[in-house]
Every structure is written in C-alpha cells, then in structure tokens.
C-alpha cells in the first residue's frame, strides 16, 4: 500500500485529527493517518484473530468424517466453512493496514504471531464438538460483540458480520449438548466430560485478570478495546451457567455461586499456571496445530505457484492482443 507522505507539520495536524475522531467515537478508516503504534497494535490483534479462526478449523475438522448423522455432517461442515470465511475477512481487513496475508502466515509459522490458546486443546469425542460450539464460540461472541464498536472501521464491520454467524455456531453446539444429555448414559458421560475439560480453558480465553492486565493502556485509549477481560469473562459466566442448568450439565467449579449483592456469579480460582504453560507452547496440541498448518501450506505451494503463473500467462496474452 502506498503511504502518503506528509510534512512534520501536516503529521502533527493529522494526528490531532486522529485523536479527535477517537474522542468523538468516529471510526478510523484505512486512508486516515494513524499513529504507528495504533497500526501495529491492530495488525497484531487482527492477525491473531484471523489465525485463530483458521487454526480453530483443526479441532473441529478432526470430526468431519466421523460426524454421526448426515445433518450433523452438514452443520459441522457449514460451521467450519464459516470459520474459514471469518479468517478470510479478517486477513483482508488486516491487509488494509499494509501487511500481506503471506507475511501474516509467515509470522504465524515463525511463532511471531499467536492464535487463541483454546485451540491448543484436543477435540476428543463428539461431545467436544458440542462444547466447542457452545462454550468456545459462546466466549468468542461475548468478546466479538464488544469489538463491533471497536475504533478501526474495517475491523468493526467484519465483527458485525461475524457475530451473526457465531450465534448460529453457539446454538448448534448447545443443540449437540442437549441431545447428548438427553441420550444414553454413555452420551451423558461424554457431554459432562467435555464440559469438564472445556470449561476452564473457555474462561481463560478472556485473558489474565484486570489486576494483571491494567486497562489504562493504549488499547482502551484508542477504543480498540472497550471492555476489560474480567467484565467480559463475567458476562460469559452469567449467561452460560443458566444454559448449563437448563439442560442439567454441571459446571466443574465447586466455588461457583450466585452473588445476590453483585448480581453476578462468583467463581473459583483460575489455574493461571496452566494458562501460561499452554500459551508458552506446552499445551496438548500447540506443536500439532502449527505443524499441520505449515504442512498444508507447504503441500499447497505448487498449486498457488501454478495459479500465479497462469494469471501471468493470461495477462501477457491480453497485453499482446
């Protein structure tokens, strides 16, 4: 992308203009001047979001060929296809900040760009497909609804579209859990086991406590982030506990109880050692997820090269006509 060159004075003027826009709650668009740190922050956050969508296709993809009914196969395929589509919008939205998809993928493979920690856990039974849809997508929605009002225009618009599809994902996950809990005793056990394994990692999706991650930072000042980690986590817990009760699943937290005074659920301590262990590369599937992505990318290189060569050939033909 060609960057517009400004004199120092003009720069100062347009930065002032940027701050004013943020203050008014206007959205920032790709051609607007923005501080380099704002651009970098967005690239990091948005590419991480895009990678999460794409890496998230792997645990669910593990069950496509074993989906237990044709309807289940269709729903799962459609859902994973949506995730791929979200990845695509987000890569495109991030490209408006002056980085290419190839560069973002190279950063992912080099370990410089991250993806959501949750996808470093394995999908072991069919109930995990339910738990991922219900809990993981449920947690993602809470975060993404908040991001619909984020200050960068292309990101906020992508979120509006994505949120519509995510609520379908959450419903399909909840439907799987409901069917299993009403099914045979083996199905009930599978559902509760999936709940037990996915509950705590889902809470960790919102990141460290606010006390560990102060929200006085740039992300708040620039209105990229609009709610704190703990606020969003609490919102997720409050809505999910009720959903679990309705179908008779037990939340694996002995300390979980309604706090009348606060009007929220209190929950037990989160195992942050586990969080940091997984985030630093030692989760059950970290290595497999990146290795898989890299292998698919490398195996497909000849196809991309052929497509580019063909495009070039057609262009030359047209130029010669």
């Amino acid at each position: 992308m060609e960057l517009l060159k400004h004199s120092e004075e003009e720069n100062e003027e347009s930065l002032k203009h940027f701050e004013e826009k943020i203050e008014r709650g206007d959205s920032i668009e790709p051609r607007d001047t923005m501080p380099e740190a704002y651009r970098k922050h967005l690239i990091r956050q948005m590419s991480q979001h895009a990678h999460s969508e794409v890496i998230g296709m792997q645990p669910e993809g593990n069950w496509i060929t074993r989906a237990p009914s044709l309807r289940a196969r269709q729903i799962l395929l459609a859902k994973i296809q949506d995730e791929g589509g979200h990845g695509l919008y987000l890569y495109s939205a991030t490209e408006t900040l002056g980085i290419s998809r190839d560069e973002m993928i190279a950063q992912l493979h080099a370990g410089k760009a991250k993806y959501s920690n949750i996808f470093n856990y394995p999908a072991l039974t069919w109930a995990d497909i339910g738990a991922i849809g219900w809990l993981v997508d449920g947690a993602a929605i809470v975060n993404q609804v908040s991001l619909q009002r984020t200050s960068y225009g292309p990101y906020s618009r992508a979120m509006v579209r994505i949120c519509k599809e995510e609520s379908f994902h959450q419903r399909q996950g909840y439907e799987i859990m409901t069917k299993m809990i009403r099914g045979t005793s083996e199905q009930q056990q599978m559902a509760q086991d999936a709940m037990n394994r996915w509950w705590w990692p889902s809470l960790m999706m919102f990141g460290p406590h606010d006390s560990e991650s102060p929200h006085t930072g740039d992300a708040f000042r620039w209105r990229i982030k609009r709610h704190s980690n703990d606020e969003l986590r609490q919102k997720f817990i409050d809505k999910t506990v009720q959903q679990a009760e309705v179908i008779g699943l037990t939340i694996p937290d002995e300390d979980l109880k309604w706090n009348e005074e606060k009007g929220h659920y209190d929950h037990g301590p989160i195992d942050w050692d586990e969080f940091y262990r997984v985030i630093t590369g030692n989760g059950p599937c970290n290595r497999q997820r990146i290795a898989h992505h890299k292998k698919v990318h490398d195996d497909g290189a000849w196809v991309r090269i052929a497509a580019a060569a063909y495009r070039e050939r057609i262009k030359k033909q047209n130029d010669n006509q």
């Binding site: 994973i80 791929g84 497909g300 000849w302």
Partner: peptide, 11 residues
Amino acid sequence: CRNAPMLEEDL
C-alpha cells in the same frame, strides 16, 4: 476442509 492449498479453495 482445513487442508486446501489456500483458504478460498478450502471454502
């Protein structure tokens, strides 16, 4: 699904 040479083709 999740194994195609590019995201567009995966979809």
